[in-house]
C-alpha cells in the first residue's frame, strides 16, 4: 500500500527527526562518557555517570524506537519496500542491532549510576568503570553515520525478492495495458 504524497512527507519528516535526534543524542552521550572518563573533578565525574541513565531512558530509547518504527512505516508505505533494496535492508539491520544493544546496555547505565551515586565510592573506583560507555557511544555513532550515508546515497542493488516483486508488478501492468 503506497502512501499519498502528503502522508509520505509526514512519515519522512517523523523518520528524519527521530533518526537525526538519535544521532545527536549519541554524540552527547559520547561527550558525557569522555567527561566521565577524563574529568579530574569528582563531582563532574559522578554527574556524568548519574545523568546517563535517565537521559538514556528518556531520550535515547524513545528516539531509537521511533526511528525504527517510522523507518518501517516509510519503507512499507513507499515503492522502496522493506526488503526490496539492499540499502533499505542494511539500514533496517543497523537500526535493529543498535536498538537491541541499547536496550541491553540500559542495565549497565543503571549499574554505573548506582556506583556513581554512592558517596562511599572513591573517584578512582568510578573511573574504573572503564571506557565501555565511550566505546559503545563511538560504535553507535559510526553505525548511525553509515545508516545516514545509505539513506542519502541510496546505492544501487535490488534483492532477489525485490526483483521478483518488480517482475510480478511489470507483468501485471502489461496484462492490464493489453486489455
Amino acid at each position: 500500500m503506497v502512501m499519498k504524497p502528503r502522508l509520505r512527507k509526514l512519515a519522512l519528516t517523523a523518520h528524519l527527526v527521530a533518526s537525526m535526534g538519535w544521532l545527536g543524542a549519541v554524540v552527547v552521550f559520547l561527550a558525557l562518557a569522555v567527561i566521565g572518563l577524563t574529568s579530574q573533578d569528582a563531582q563532574t565525574m559522578r554527574g556524568a555517570y548519574l545523568v546517563m541513565q535517565p537521559a538514556a531512558w528518556w531520550v535515547l530509547v524513545p528516539l531509537a524506537v521511533a526511528s525504527l518504527l517510522t523507518g518501517i512505516v516509510q519503507a512499507l508505505g513507499t515503492t522502496w519496500g522493506l526488503f526490496r533494496h539492499y540499502w533499505v535492508l542494511f539500514k533496517l539491520l543497523i537500526n535493529v542491532v543498535a536498538t537491541v544493544v541499547l536496550l541491553m546496555y540500559m542495565r549497565t547505565f543503571g549499574i554505573m549510576a548506582r556506583t556513581a551515586s554512592d558517596p562511599a565510592t572513591s573517584p578512582s573506583s568510578i573511573r574504573a568503570l572503564g571506557a565501555s560507555p565511550s566505546q559503545h557511544a563511538a560504535l553507535a555513532l559510526m553505525l548511525l553515520l553509515v545508516a545516514t550515508l545509505l539513506a542519502v546515497y541510496k546505492p544501487k542493488g535490488v534483492t532477489r525478492y525485490g526483483q521478483r516483486k518488480q517482475r510480478a508488478e511489470q507483468a501485471q501492468r502489461r496484462a492490464v495495458s493489453v486489455r
Binding site: 542495565r107 556506583t115 572503564g130
Partner: peptide, 10 residues
C-alpha cells in the same frame, strides 16, 4: 563491575 568492561549485560 569488572574494570575495563564497565558492566555485565547478559
Amino acid at each position: 563491575v569488572a574494570p575495563g568492561s564497565g558492566h555485565d549485560s547478559g
